[in-house]
Design a protein around this nucleic acid. Sequence first.
DNA 1: CTCTGGATTAGCT
DNA 2: GCTAATCCAGAGC
Length: 243
Amino acid sequence: MQLKRLMHKRMPYKKLPRNFYLQPTLHIAQQLIGKYLIRRFGDQRLIGRIVETEAYLGRRDPASHAYRGISKRNAVMFRTGGHAYVYFTYGMHFCINVVTEEEGTGHAVLLRALEPINGFELMMKHRHLTPPDQGNRRPADSDLINLCNGPAKLCQAFGIDRAQNGTDLCGSEIWLAQDAVPAEGQRKSRDSSGKGRRRKANPQENLRIRRSTRIGITSGREHRWRFYVKGSPFVSRGKPVER
DNA sequence: CTCTGGATTAGCT
DNA sequence: GCTAATCCAGAGC
């Protein structure tokens, strides 16, 4: 399989503003599909396109770390939307959430998988996938697919750990972005061809977004609060809980 | 204080 | 398909 879409074309990215993160969490979880996680790392940028998310709805969600209220571990979840909640799990892994909605709600969206867009070599190095003597070779497709296809994998690839917990995503270390598309009024074409086909500036227009139950949830009735791109080879391998 | 199991992954059968 | 690896938050006593 040729992963030609991995060739990174220079494209302007627009950082998502604070207001984006203050919308309803389920809406954000879906809207994040197709957007980008970007980390400034030294003099380069690691970029991944989000292909899988899960919503966690604070105090009313038994599967959420915020279910039992604020604590030392989850305090960042209760900040205002647009912060990064990074937690440590299974004794060795980190996962990153985007905190959403108003301060005090404890809502968040887990980033579960990314399509690597830029910075493969550094991602591979972080993931310990770089063969020592083959630095300049093009990575194998299987390695690219394995870089960010899980919540802990993408954190490792992006070098995200405890130190990034609480990072303001409206800052300049880690942020989320969308493709910068021309505003409606600035389009060149007048489209007077009579077709009447109005093309909307929608970054998700070519994506087949599906939803399912969340992965790895074993307590309570599970909700269909997971969103992913159908058919993407970059989605994680976890299985939805069906019960 | 001790105990349990987890928003996971890699490696093996 | 199964499970070890390895920390620690939260629960229970």
